[in-house]
């Protein structure tokens, strides 16, 4: 199995190199343990700048754990530890000297369920910038407008910036969460099944938004919806029971998968 993983990685790398994308985040034999249980097993792959990478796989395959490992959100879970390397900007983010606050400022995250704070829309977007020391009102207003525009929600909320964000619809809340993540201008945005709690219409809006955002940001998205992965991503990682089975260009992975498991999964034989 280990040998197989190595082999597939090599194929993809040559494949990816042909278009010459820059990698921004690399994992090397990266593992995550919950106590004795190895949830992510020695994953080695790359995530490319200004591209969308989708992580797919059946539930419990470790795809969310891997994603949360990318900005050390797993630190919160007691008994959870990581092994191997996760290289970002020439540094292993699991180094002892890493400042998690700085790391999370540069790698933002959007969650499965929209988790707006019970504050005003304005304060939600400002939460990050304020944490990082921006106090000036004019500057904050500028950031709010830019972020909400980028998240394609500005027109809907510009007249009620100071009302409670809880009153927004689910789809609007999720776009507000994206705006909140954008407000601290991260380099990478991690999205953990961002549309799983939304209706089809809102899902389409978020997918369109992701298409726009990849021009400026790098996006890693976990999804259980294969059509979504095929629609929006450039690269796809397929994971199964903690192992990375296959990694490659989305088009290739979905049309000519190299591995039997991948083919079985995308043709719906399990999952």
């Amino acid at each position: 199995m280990d040998n197989d993983t190595q082999k597939s990685l090599i194929t993809v790398n040559t494949d990816a190199a042909s278009e010459n994308p820059d990698s921004i985040l690399n994992t090397e034999e990266f593992s995550i343990f919950y106590g004795d249980f190895e949830a992510v097993r020695k994953v080695s792959c790359s995530f490319f700048k200004h591209h969308v990478t989708a992580i797919i796989g059946p539930s419990g395959c470790g795809k969310s754990t891997l994603l949360r490992g990318m900005n050390r959100m797993n630190d919160l879970i007691p008994g959870c530890r990581a092994d191997g390397k996760m290289i970002f900007d020439n540094a292993n983010i699991y180094d002892r000297t890493i400042d998690v606050v700085q790391l999370r400022k540069r790698i933002g995250m959007v969650f499965q369920k929209p988790n707006v704070f019970p504050k005003s829309i304005f304060d939600n977007v400002c939460y990050g910038p304020r944490l990082h020391g921006i106090r000036k009102r004019s500057q904050l207003e500028e950031i709010v407008e830019r972020s909400l525009n980028q998240a394609a929600i500005w027109d809907e909320v510009k007249d009620r910036l100071h009302t409670n964000a809880i009153g927004l619809s689910g789809g609007q809340q999720q776009r507000l969460c994206i705006a909140r993540a954008l407000a601290i201008t991260p380099e990478i945005i991690l999205m953990d099944e961002p549309t799983s709690a939304l209706d089809p219409k809102s899902t389409t809006k978020i997918e369109d938004l992701i298409g726009e955002l990849q021009k400026e940001y790098t996006i890693v998205i976990v999804t259980h919806n294969m059509q979504q992965a095929a629609r929006i991503s450039h690269f796809t990682v397929f994971m199964y029971e903690g192992d990375m089975i296959e990694f490659g260009k989305t088009q290739k992975l979905f049309t000519k998968p190299e591995k039997k498991e991948t083919e079985d999964y995308i043709t719906g034989r399990f999952g």
Binding site: F88, N90, A91, I93, D95, T97, I98, R106
Partner: peptide, 14 residues
């Protein structure tokens, strides 16, 4: 130590 802003100095860490 690389100065990419991600690291914190030993003093800061302390």
């Amino acid at each position: 130590m690389k100065s990419n802003g991600l690291h914190i100095s030993a003093r800061q860490d302390f």
